[in-house]
Amino acid sequence: MNIYQEQILEHYKDPQNYGVLKNATHRDYALNPTCGDKVCIDMHIKKNIIQDIAFSGSGCAISQAAASMFTQKVKGITVENLTMMNKDDILKMLEIELSMNRLKCGVLVLEASHRALHNPIKL
């Protein structure tokens, strides 16, 4: 299967929610040491809702497109719903099959987001 579908390439070339949040309440990052992919997540959480989310970092098309699509998907959902999301949600969102090695790239944003939930910014 060609994993470089139009949707993936579009998000990679023109990522959504890219950058940092000035009013972030939660922040963390995840790394893929085999390829050097990095995804950083900023979230603004209020009343148990992901009010805003942004990502930054660099990496392959899969990791960056997944981050772009994921941030669109989780904006506005509850903390519990974000906590419950897993790799199947990522694969469903990407609409491609990923080999074991490339799956790590796809789920990097999920890992970063889950880590960020546990890492509130101390004001």
């Binding site: 060609n2 470089y4 390829c35 992919d37 660099s58 392959c60 098309a61 899969i62 490339r102 790239c105």
Partner: peptide, 13 residues
Amino acid sequence: IHPHDIASILDTQ
């Protein structure tokens, strides 16, 4: 272009 993307395309195509 990320090297992983280069390697994936060279492999699959």
